[in-house]
Amino acid sequence: TRVETATETAWISLVTALHLVLGLSAVLGLLLLRWQFPAHYRRLRHALW
């Protein structure tokens, strides 16, 4: 049971790290898009909202 718990903890930390990385890359990508294509971003936002 001790090994299982350790594996579970490792998986949880791995998944958390993955989610953090994905979230950060998504935010960075959005910022980059907004910085590179302001007109396109505004049009996209206008279409979405």
Rank of each mutant, 00 (worst) to 15 (best):
T1Y: 11
R2T: 15
R2E: 13
R2L: 14
V3C: 04
V3K: 02
V3N: 06
V3E: 00
E4V: 13
T5W: 08
T5S: 02
T5A: 04
A6W: 02
T7A: 15
T7R: 04
T7L: 09
T7Q: 07
T7I: 06
E8L: 01
E8C: 02
E8W: 05
E8Y: 01
T9L: 11
T9H: 06
A10K: 08
A10P: 03
A10G: 10
W11F: 13
I12S: 02
I12M: 04
I12V: 07
I12W: 05
I12K: 07
S13Q: 10
S13T: 14
S13M: 08
S13L: 11
S13P: 03
S13K: 04
L14D: 08
L14R: 06
L14E: 03
L14F: 07
V15T: 08
V15M: 11
V15I: 12
V15L: 11
V15A: 07
T16K: 03
T16S: 10
T16D: 06
T16A: 09
T16P: 01
A17H: 00
A17L: 09
L18Q: 03
L18G: 01
H19F: 15
H19N: 15
H19M: 12
L20N: 05
L20H: 01
L20W: 01
L20G: 07
L22V: 14
G23T: 09
G23L: 15
G23I: 14
G23C: 14
G23V: 14
G23W: 00
L24W: 12
L24A: 13
L24R: 01
L24Q: 04
S25V: 08
S25I: 06
A26C: 06
A26D: 05
V27P: 02
V27A: 03
L28Q: 02
L28C: 05
G29D: 00
G29N: 03
G29W: 10
L30K: 04
L30V: 11
L30Q: 00
L31C: 15
L31R: 04
L31A: 14
L31S: 09
L32D: 00
L33Y: 00
L33I: 05
L33V: 10
R34H: 05
R34G: 06
R34C: 05
R34I: 08
W35M: 15
W35N: 15
W35K: 15
Q36C: 10
Q36W: 09
Q36K: 15
Q36G: 13
F37K: 03
F37N: 11
F37D: 09
F37I: 01
F37A: 07
P38M: 11
P38C: 07
A39L: 11
A39D: 12
H40M: 12
H40P: 09
Y41N: 00
Y41Q: 07
R42W: 08
R42G: 13
R42N: 13
R42T: 12
R42E: 14
R43K: 10
R43M: 09
R43N: 11
R43V: 10
R43T: 12
L44P: 03
R45T: 08
R45I: 06
R45V: 07
R45K: 14
R45P: 03
R45S: 05
R45D: 03
R45W: 07
H46Y: 08
A47V: 09
A47S: 12
A47T: 11
L48K: 00
L48A: 09
L48T: 06
L48Y: 00
L48F: 04
W49A: 01
